[in-house]
Design a protein around this nucleic acid. Structure first.
Lengths: 200, 200
DNA sequence: ATCTACATTTTTATAGATAAAAGTGAAGCC
DNA sequence: GGCTTCACTTTTATCTATAAAAATGTAGAT
């Protein structure tokens, strides 16, 4: 969770969500003055916000030429998937052995939110939170935040591709993963997760 | 490679190296005015430089309280090693199948630099470049930069622990890895790398 | 009509000034 | 003596202004 007491954090947070959703089109220019006017501040905090977006890989900066919304190529997507397939099982194995009933409850919340979602945007958000929730108990902060970043990038792709054709479905994989986690079956949980992500 | 035409990049780059080497002690305060005076600029570019350090995980920021040099715990080290053991083989497998003779030559340069190094700092630098060089041909930019970050953090630990007791040695693992890469033996290359990293 | 050179405009990068929050320390009180 | 309060200092966060670089558009030449 970013700190929202500081302007750059607020601005970066807002823009990040818009980029993920596809409200800001890939390659679009992010001009300092324009954003400053929108958030009613000078462009100094905007510069810091843009830097945060660059660090999240949601934007690309070219010195003295400005920053643009990140363009996600097919090759980027392959790489991201590969990294997720490597890191998420790593986190999941640890999470399975450490999860408490409180953690289970938390996972269920987002599984439910996925199934109940009735538009692509809210489904994707819930999905992302679910996939993070099942890994949360792993107790590896930097592993989690790296995965979170990859999941955000995956979300961009989802929105650009299936935003319009999305339709509500109950996700069988999600419940299967949850069941495996609850019976502390790392092997099964990881296997299903890997299959689930590969289909993405 | 960071762009050095812009002040925040220059400042961040310099401070990063100092943090890695341990010149800046863990937990030490990074005050804007002080750094601004040192680099003869206002504190606006300093703020951006500090943000970059935070993004590299070389520093920790607390809003309205300032930023301090990152403190690396034993648990952090475990996590970093775990991630490296997961990501570096992933990169290495791809690198092995893609490496050209030009790449081999590049790897040799840094292997040599390691063996020739006669102080801990230059050895560590060469070592880091070697470990990156063997993965470079993988053609996965974000995987590489993530690994680079983890290697930087490993370097901090090296310097805090073995800076004083370091003595020159020829690294058998390094040449074994290179040989395996040159005969396109992914399995062996990964196995040696994993063992090599685990001994840390 | 197209290209080049130059002037104009726009945008980024940095400086300097100001506001606001946090830290510091001394005086007074229990 | 130790604790609290309040003024003072320091430091962070933000704004406004300026410098510098890039983009844009126009006029003139071929």
């Amino acid at each position: 969770m970013p700190d929202l007491s500081i302007k750059p954090a607020i601005i970066a947070d807002t823009l990040a969500e818009e980029i993920i959703r596809g409200d800001l089109v890939q390659g679009a220019r992010l001009a300092q003055d324009h954003i400053a006017a929108r958030f009613q501040c000078s462009h100094v905090p905007v510069r810091e916000a843009l830097q945060r977006l660059v660090q999240m890989e949601l934007a690309t900066a070219i010195p003295r030429k400005g920053v643009r919304v990140f363009k996600l190529s097919d090759q980027d997507h392959d790489e991201i998937l590969e990294m997720r397939l490597s890191l998420e099982p790593l986190a999941l194995r640890r999470a399975v052995t450490r999860a408490t009933s409180q953690d289970y409850a938390n996972m269920e919340v987002f599984r439910h939110a996925c199934d109940k979602a009735d538009d692509a945007i809210s489904w994707e958000r819930a999905n992302r939170l679910f996939h993070l929730a099942i890994l949360q108990p792993c107790d590896r902060p930097r592993l989690l935040s790296q995965i979170e970043q990859l999941q955000r990038l995956s979300a961009i792709r989802f929105h650009t591709r299936w935003k319009t054709t999305w339709s509500r479905t109950s996700d069988a994989d999600h419940s299967a993963i949850l069941k495996a986690i609850k019976r502390a079956d790392e092997k099964a949980a990881c296997a299903i997760l890997v299959r689930h992500l590969s289909r993405g």
